[in-house]
Simulated scan of single mutants.
Amino acid sequence: MIAWLLAPLLLGLCGRGSPEELCPYRVSGEGAGGGLCFRTSASDFACERRACRPVHGPGGSLRANVLRNGSVLLQWRPPEAGRAALRGFALNCSWSGAHARFRCDSVQLGASCRDYLLAGVHPGPRYRVCLRSLYGNGSSAAAECLDFRAEPAGLPDIVIAMTAVGGAICVMLVIICLLVAYITENLMQPAPAPRA
């Protein structure tokens, strides 16, 4: 808790950016150290159509940018009401397996955070991410959730390659059929009829 109170001071000492650009966060879960970390906010990120697919939450403030490299950049807008008392955000993640639901790491983020990179997303399962706003008096807002599914890496490239190979085989078969038709019509002369 003391580290969260000292976060503004630590941000000022880092020298890598202003406090508005740096995001303090803590990951808790299996295999996570739970220490306070800092990351630079990706405020200028644009989801390009070839490498990214955006998924919007029902409330409109949470968005998941599903990238082709197996990661997801989560972005959000802070709530308008109670912005002065805002102390941070709680991010929870889970994904559905064949018979059970598994939890991802939970993340506590500082009030200056507007995005978080969820790395190591498995292709295929449906993920559910929920974000709650936390306030100084210990209360929290209702969570906004969204569901997404990551695409297998390189799948569009495989489809394009298979389509190109299939098209080339079809063209070759058409050419072979035309050659056979030409040979049988023009080059092979019918045998002369025997004279009586």
Rank of each mutant, 00 (worst) to 15 (best):
R26M: 06
R101M: 11
S112I: 04
D44P: 03
G88I: 01
E185T: 13
D44H: 13
S61W: 08
A191Q: 07
P192S: 05
P152E: 04
V27Q: 12
A191T: 10
G82V: 03
Q189V: 07
I175K: 15
G70R: 01
S41W: 07
G15F: 01
V159S: 15
M172Y: 11
E20P: 08
V180F: 13
H99K: 15
A168I: 14
I176N: 14
V159G: 10
R77K: 13
R16K: 15
R39Y: 08
E30T: 07
L173V: 09
P156Y: 05
F148A: 00
E80H: 07
A150M: 02
C177K: 11
G167P: 02
A81T: 08
C177G: 13
L6N: 10
A142W: 04
I176V: 15
P54V: 03
G57T: 04
A98P: 08
P19D: 00
G34F: 01
N65E: 05
G167K: 12
S96K: 12
C14A: 13
E48D: 13
G136D: 08
M172R: 14
G60H: 07
C145Y: 01
E185K: 09
R101F: 08
V121D: 04
V121A: 05
I160R: 15
V27C: 08
G110N: 04
A64Y: 01
G31W: 03
D115L: 01
H99L: 14
A42N: 09
P8D: 01
F38Q: 03
R114D: 05
P19K: 04
A90C: 07
M188T: 08
M162V: 14
C130G: 03
L117K: 05
I175R: 14
S106R: 07
H99T: 14
L6T: 05
L117N: 04
R68N: 07
L134S: 06
P125I: 03
G154E: 06
S61N: 09
R68G: 06
V72C: 01
G15H: 01
I2H: 10
C23P: 00
D105F: 11
L118W: 11
P125W: 00
S96P: 07
P58Q: 06
